[in-house]
């Protein structure tokens, strides 16, 4: 819409700035808190301007963790989170691509039955099936392992459904042209379908990476070994100090660090992400 009215311009900017301020303020507080020492953080009022302890806090968060706590640095936990998030994202995409491919392009008995079976798992998120899932994972000896962290979260109805819709928009003639060119099923999948779903895969990767990264309940349940803790769950544990006040500066620094990888993923994949969500022309 093209308008040339100063008041509208002013108003729209005001609304946008207000929106940004509301979203950015907590992040600013987090940043400010991460730059002060522990003593300043328990005094009122809360500081609103950065202090000079940023690098000291960074050093402590990365290498030592909160003092008196049982944690050892945040590096290992970020690595664990990264592995879990990547395994979930890549695993989900791989499985959904293949199942959508089977559902759309193959005629087998009970095809729609299988589709609906996948689809109704949407109604069963991790929290609902957490006890039986825990039982299965425990019986398979996958507690305290990357497999245990990621596999139960991999099956995905949403992604399967999304790829199904994408494949349905690809004209049948392309399949026929590929058949005449002599491409078999898997060749068609890798040479034609995959490259054509590139932007959708990217968009889904961003969403699923963040989904995996933010997992809290499941890692909390199945990891007892500190070397397998993920960063999101351990932030919460940092607050549970028995005797003294929580070390807000270290906790906030850890939070900042925990925010970084998703931000990096979003920033680098933003172009593909937007394309994947909006592009319709095939």
């Amino acid at each position: 819409m093209i308008e040339n009215r100063p008041f509208i311009t002013f108003l729209s900017h005001a609304v946008l700035i207000l929106g940004i301020a509301i979203i950015a303020f907590p992040i600013w507080i987090t940043f400010v808190a991460a730059t002060h020492d522990a003593v300043r953080m328990v005094q009122v009022p809360l500081p609103l301007l950065p202090g000079d302890q940023f690098f000291a806090n960074l050093d402590q968060a990365l290498n030592k963790g909160i003092s008196g706590g049982s944690n050892s640095g945040v590096g290992m936990m970020i690595f664990n989170s990264l592995v879990m998030a990547l395994m979930i994202a890549i695993g989900k995409i791989a499985i959904s691509l293949l199942s959508a491919f089977a559902i759309v392009y193959f005629r087998f008995p009970f095809r729609m039955g299988f589709f609906w079976m996948i689809f109704i798992t949407l109604m069963l998120p991790v929290e609902v099936r957490i006890i039986p899932t825990f039982e299965v994972v425990a019986n398979l000896n996958m507690l305290n392992s990357y497999w245990g962290l990621s596999i139960p979260l991999i099956a995905s109805a949403t992604a399967t459904f999304m790829f199904r819709q994408t494949f349905l928009t690809i004209p049948d003639e392309l399949l026929e042209a590929a058949r005449i060119d002599g491409a078999g099923a898997m060749r068609f999948f890798f040479d034609i379908l995959l490259p054509m779903s590139r932007t959708n895969i990217a968009a889904l990767f961003v969403i699923l990476f963040i989904y995996g990264w933010n997992q809290y309940l499941w890692p909390l349940l199945i990891t007892t070994d500190q070397s397998m803790f993920t960063v999101v769950m351990s932030i919460k544990q940092m607050l549970e100090t028995a005797e003294q006040a929580p070390e807000w500066n270290i906790i906030m620094m850890t939070t900042l660090l925990a925010m970084l990888p998703p931000v990096v993923v979003v920033v680098f994949m933003q172009k593909l992400f937007v394309k994947g969500l909006t592009e319709t022309e095939k």
């Binding site: 004209p171 003639e173 026929e176 042209a177 058949r179 005449i180 491409a183």
Partner: peptide, 28 residues
């Protein structure tokens, strides 16, 4: 279809959108 030694031209062309013209022609 691939073993019948035929070639087909489709109404909506059915070109592979992610391949260059050269690759489209060379794919088969």
């Amino acid at each position: 279809p691939a073993d019948r030694n035929i070639a087909m031209v489709f109404q909506n062309y059915a070109l592979y959108p992610h391949m260059s013209v050269y690759q489209n022609m060379a794919y088969g």
